[in-house]
Write a protein that binds this DNA or RNA. Sequence first.
DNA 1: GCGACCATGTAATCTGTTACATGATTAC
DNA 2: GTAATCATGTAACAGATTACATGGTCGC
Lengths: 175, 175
Amino acid sequence: MDAKTLCLGVLLKGPATGYDIRKAFESGPFGHFCGAGFGSIYPALHKLEKEGLIEARAGDGSKRATRKFFALTRKGETALRRELANPAPLGPDLMRSEFMFRLFFAHLMPHERIAALIAERKALYKKKLVIVEGVLSRKDCRPGERFIAEMGRDLVLTALNHLEKNAPGLLGEKD
Amino acid sequence: MDAKTLCLGVLLKGPATGYDIRKAFESGPFGHFCGAGFGSIYPALHKLEKEGLIEARAGDGSKRATRKFFALTRKGETALRRELANPAPLGPDLMRSEFMFRLFFAHLMPHERIAALIAERKALYKKKLVIVEGVLSRKDCRPGERFIAEMGRDLVLTALNHLEKNAPGLLGEKD
DNA sequence: GCGACCATGTAATCTGTTACATGATTAC
DNA sequence: GTAATCATGTAACAGATTACATGGTCGC
């Protein structure tokens, strides 16, 4: 799942600019299981174009002429399908969370700090929830996309729930 | 959360070899929110030693003399505490999942392939569950560690549950 | 006019992954 | 004896992150 494959995947949903792809990761349907910044996306796009897997179309004459829409070529679609069909076992789901790393050492932090971290994280999760619910409300949401978005929503709800239910206990029984 | 900080964190629980640290990520209490391979751990350990944050002790005379136990120095403990106290806002929780990426495009895959992917993933999640329950059953599990392990357990249970409940729907309504 | 957001791109650096290389110990 | 697990390490490479650099458009 390098940046190139990720871009290919996003473009399967339809032509998009580099900026659009970034948004798909930041606040779109891909955000809860992968991601990439501009510094990965643009180089990836250029490589894909050179390989003939995508092609660029100029922005529609009038305004914002600077933007470049990229679209999958037939070759690109085939490549992605082949990648998806690859029977090699998939890697494990990876999660990395600075938040969990910190809370792991709760016994080394003052109460207020823990409480602040948890409050901050709850706000983040709520924002995520809004995003994933936005995805679910769209009509062009295919079964697979819906399945994954619902999984993402359940996961965020679980995290939120855990913080709400168990934070008091953590703050109370501190040594 | 680079490899160095991660190692420091693991060593706060007690002296360990590079191999032990790897296990803490692979099948120990750190596994569900961070990770590193040997190729990151050993160089990190050597850098930390050079900086005086950890120190090496030779293996206990008898057998397995080749292994080297690393332990936090006072300086190292201070450094970690400072890091934990750092009030800079934490980065978001990142998840990356090849599984979700694939399932997102379920409409491009044959039924059996989807079913196989889901079955495989269920097995992985069950394995994870066993690991996290092992962590929770240990007595030396501090409140923060317990809080995070319970969060991990809830998350895995949610994922498992989602697969069990919704996979039939995904397989049924395929176009 | 100004701030937020749209939009593209490059370069340096950092760091992680992968593959390689080696060898001891333990349980079957 | 042989396979699994313990155990440490290096080197090359790929890749991502970060910071930089620039400029247009939209709404208030």
